[in-house]
Design a protein around this nucleic acid. Structure first.
Length: 573
DNA sequence: GCCGTTTTCGGCCCGACTGTTTTCAGTCG
């Protein structure tokens, strides 16, 4: 039983919560939270690294002690210190801290005064009006806790980027029309292109006399005003999304944008660099002895700490500061550099539009090529193609290509990888295609080793080019199947195959960590939309966002190349 | 508990808003 990074991170977070309730050294608490973030967001599995005897103290925020604790967790599945702390302080108190408005101090008071040790206990106490009687609490606080308990589900709900975008653009449009409003920009994890966002951070600059804050809380999608001030307000929308709006003066725009874009870890790192140079960096600017020396643009902020501009997608404190110092920042791929899409369906299987419609839409985006990758016969639910229909399909593509002027359709297929690692169509017909995407659509639950071997065996077939949606996960819906991604990547590299970064906003598969890992291993990826309609082709931008988060450059991505170059690249050894 | 082109000890980012208070603690981002 291998322990996942997320489980190690969860244990450290829980430990941090409990230590905070016990009023331990706040910096020690933070060390555990930092470690949780490092481990939870790391591209390689701690279990693998321990197995290989690698030095975990090389990781940021991991010292001797934490390296030891991680090793223990990998070997035994347990964190003895957590057990010890839980013997004094009930572990479920950590769950209480997930309720908005409850932090360590209040949870401690609830526990000590009312013996509340679980969500159920808290619900009962709130119902019975016990909470308002506590010192530091009151009627209003009790009422808020009650309301938030009703909505509390336990799991943190994050919104997929596409949905967030729909909500955000409507709100931005509304705010932009406010009196005296100058700039409106969405910052936070949205700007960093995270695959899901927790809440929306909207930054705006406005004239002194602007009434935009009132306009914001009056927005007809607002379900609850959580806080309202002159420079900052927070609401919950009917969709459940929380939105923060902050207003700053023009001279602070860059500093504020930098601060509200985050990530928190990146901000702390930059501010610490500032402190070392005798500066104070906050959302209003960079200050030396209370005198503002920078802050109108983000570039100015980075200038003060002697760093080049760092793109938002890189700001996770995963090495971008060091890379910036050493002038080793990647030149991140952009949407414009993409020359074609390598994964799309038409009516022939489960898509909504015809070959011609898809070709026209792709040409409209300025693409030079589009691979038509219908499902294969095994995926009956998607009307997958058998040998006969695939041959017809090849003819249809050839015929249409004769008419098309600005774009070439690539003859292709998304062929299923069977349980035994064979492909769902005979080699004799696969050989006739320009490019082959191979995917898993059934039997997600194989044990790790079997799943890994299944994919590697499939790659042994010389027709295999690209592994489609490599982990099979659906964001917020279905976990990735258990597979040794590093082995798969190494296998792909050795055989001259590639992995897809599926750009569909429900998938975004590879993850950003997956992209980083591929880059480290020297494996190139294909960014492709898995479009089932003409408008889906525009999902490419989400894939680009994810790729940028994974430090990918144009050279790391195969479909930045013209078709004749790409064709050479696809040739197996 | 981590970290070090000032340090192996002594630092560790910074400000807004709320509710409960009469000046501030707690929470959040």
């Amino acid at each position: 039983m291998t322990i996942h990074n997320s489980e190690i991170a969860a244990a450290f977070d829980r430990l941090a919560d409990l230590l905070e309730i016990e009023e331990a050294n706040p910096f020690r608490v933070r060390a555990y939270r930092n470690a949780a973030r490092t481990v939870g967001g790391y591209s390689r599995s701690m279990a693998d690294m321990v197995d290989k005897g690698e030095d975990l103290t090389e990781l940021p925020e991991i010292g001797k002690d934490l390296a030891q604790k991680i090793t223990t967790m990998v070997k035994t599945g347990k964190l003895p210190l957590l057990k010890e702390v839980e013997s004094r302080t009930p572990g479920a108190l950590s769950d209480l801290m997930k309720i908005e408005g409850l932090g360590p101090k209040r949870v401690k008071t609830l526990y000590k005064q009312l013996h509340i040790r679980s969500i159920e206990d808290l619900k009962r106490a709130a119902r019975n009006g016990k909470i308002r009687e506590l010192e530091g609490f009151g009627e209003k606080t009790e009422e808020l806790i009650k309301q938030r308990l009703e909505r509390f589900s336990g799991a943190e709900q994050r919104t997929k980027l596409l949905v967030a975008q729909e909500i955000a653009t409507a709100l931005v449009d509304y705010l932009t029309k406010g009196k005296g409003v100058k700039n409106v920009i969405i910052a936070g994890s949205y700007r960093r292109c995270k695959e899901t966002v927790g809440d929306l951070d909207i930054l705006l600059t406005a004239r002194q006399d602007s009434t935009v804050m009132k306009r914001f809380v009056d927005y007809d999608e607002v379900a609850e005003v959580i806080s309202r001030g002159k420079t900052r307000s927070t609401v919950r929308l009917r969709s459940g999304m929380h939105v923060d709006v902050r207003v700053v003066p023009d001279v602070s725009y860059g500093a504020a944008l930098h601060y509200f874009t985050g990530s928190k870890a990146h901000n702390i790192a930059v501010r610490t660099l500032g402190v070392k140079k005798g500066y104070k960096i906050n959302e209003y600017g960079v200050f030396k002895n209370d005198k503002r020396i920078a802050g109108k643009t983000e570039q100015e902020v980075y200038d003060t700490v002697d760093l080049p501009y760092i793109e938002p997608e890189l700001r996770e404190n995963r090495g971008e500061i060091e890379a910036a110092k050493n002038h080793k920042l990647p030149r991140l791929i952009t949407l414009k550099q993409i020359r074609g899409d390598l994964h799309a369906h038409t009516k022939a299987s489960d898509g909504h539009h015809s070959l011609k419609q898809m070709a026209d839409a792709a040409a409209q985006l300025g693409y030079e090529y589009l691979a038509i990758t219908e499902h294969s016969q095994h995926v009956t639910i998607a009307n997958g193609l058998d040998k006969r229909r695939l041959l017809q399909h090849i003819k249809a593509v050839d015929k249409l290509n004769e008419q098309l002027e600005n774009i070439t359709l690539l003859k292709s297929i998304e062929v299923d990888i069977m349980d035994d690692g064979s492909l769902d169509l005979p080699d004799s017909v696969l050989q006739k295609l320009d490019l082959i995407v191979c995917s898993i659509h059934y039997n997600f639950n194989l044990p790790r080793q079997k799943q890994t071997e299944r994919i590697l065996r499939a790659m042994d077939n010389p027709n295999f080019n690209i592994l489609g949606h490599p982990s099979g996960r659906l964001i917020n819906e279905r976990d990735a199947y258990d597979v040794d991604l590093e082995k798969v990547m190494q296998g792909a590299k050795e055989r001259g195959c590639f992995l897809e970064l599926n750009a569909h906003p429900d998938r975004l598969d590879l993850t950003d960590d997956g992209c980083l890992l591929a880059k480290q291993l020297g494996l190139k990826v294909a960014i492709a939309t898995d479009a089932h309609s003409t408008s889906d082709l525009e999902f490419m931008r989400f894939g680009i966002g994810q790729a940028r988060r994974g430090w990918l450059e144009a050279d790391d991505v195969i479909n930045t190349r013209p078709w004749d170059e790409l064709k050479q690249l696809l040739k197996r050894n």
